[in-house]
């Protein structure tokens, strides 16, 4: 470890003085993206799969060969074939079309839920880390309280109490993810609170909230990006899990969790495709988000932008 730390800055120095002045390349987001992607093939795969998921989420209904809700009792429970790639379910609906169409709903739930927990959790954690004292105690105990529950049970409780709707799934998912952001933000802000550039910002006349919002918080982003990506996977699983036990999204809406739940009844009788394909889609999505973490962090890290 030590050797890398010692040689890297020295090298940087050598590089910047050797190439004096290096051509002022515009550090556009795109060239940064290309660099990050080419440095690590796994990141490239992750971003590629993410792009695919987004495309399917947007154009899913157009790409689907059949209507996800159109039942055809003559063709019920047919195994995968050229006409129905993923087979058909007990009502004769095309599983492939349903898996495609479900992408939008699942992605939307997780993105919105993660966005809410990032904003609220990040803000609370940052305030706790920066101001300390009562802020820290209140936010800290609040977070501890949430963490004290088994998170999935808490989400179940929230949805059951607040009503069985898609919005409530989003809120429940946001609430159970909030502690992670609050904790990461608190720790990252706290270690930067007295760093020289923050003191310099105060000398430059930045009021407290401005120091926090424009000087400290952006620098705390890279580790939070990793958290976002991991959480996206959890959020999808969580939403699907709630649907699986019958909360939130209701049939006949196409949703991965419900499809797995419904398909599970047919595994015993040998109709495996009903549960397998939505399950695989779910797994693929979670896997993609987990892979993306490092790439996302590298994207928002200015040290990597040269």
């Amino acid at each position: 470890m030590n050797r890398i730390e010692t040689t890297a800055p020295a090298l940087e120095e050598a590089v910047s003085s050797a190439a004096e002045p290096p051509p002022e390349k515009q550090s556009s987001a795109w060239s940064q993206f290309v660099y990050v992607a080419t440095q690590n093939p796994l990141t490239l795969v992750a971003f590629g799969m993410f792009a695919l998921i987004v495309v399917v989420a947007i154009f899913g209904p157009m790409l689907a060969p059949y209507s996800p809700l159109a039942s055809d009792s003559a063709n019920a429970l047919k195994p995968p074939s050229w006409d129905h790639w993923f087979g058909t379910d007990n009502l004769g609906r095309d599983v492939f079309s349903r898996v495609l169409v479900a992408t939008r709903l699942d992605l939307l739930i997780s993105v919105i839920a993660v966005a809410i927990s990032f904003v609220i959790g990040g803000a609370l954690g940052a305030l706790a880390g920066y101001y300390g004292g009562w802020w820290d105690r209140i936010v800290g105990r609040m977070v501890d309280t949430i963490m004290a529950f088994p998170l999935f049970v808490l989400a179940m409780g929230i949805v059951a109490a607040a009503g069985n709707t898609v919005e409530n799934i989003v809120y429940a998912t946001a609430i159970i993810n909030l502690p992670f952001y609050a904790r990461v933000a608190r720790a990252e802000v706290n270690i930067r609170r007295d760093s020289p550039y923050v003191l310099a910002a105060r000398l430059s006349g930045n009021a407290g909230w401005r120091v926090l919002a424009f000087h400290i918080f952006p620098n705390a982003l890279p580790p939070m990006m990793v958290q976002i990506s991991l959480n996206m996977g959890w959020a999808i699983l969580n939403a699907a899990g709630l649907s699986f036990i019958g909360l939130g999204v209701q049939p006949p809406t196409a949703e991965w969790g419900i499809m797995v739940a419904e398909g599970a009844n047919f595994i015993v009788s040998g109709e495996w495709w009903l549960a397998l394909f939505p399950g695989a889609a779910l797994m693929l999505a979670v896997f993609t988000f987990n892979l993306m973490g490092d790439g996302l962090r590298d994207l928002v890290d200015p040290q990597r932008r040269t």
């Binding site: 020289p196 550039y197 310099a200 000398l203 006349g205 407290g208 952006p218 040290q303």
Partner: peptide
């Protein structure tokens, strides 16, 4: 000190820090 950023005397007293790297916001 927490309110001094808005004091009329803030510009009059300024500081240069020890580590030039640490004292600049990396972003």
């Amino acid at each position: 000190a927490s309110d001094f950023a808005r004091s009329p005397h803030r510009p009059a007293v300024q500081m240069v820090f020890q580590d030039p790297t640490e004292s600049l916001n990396p972003r």
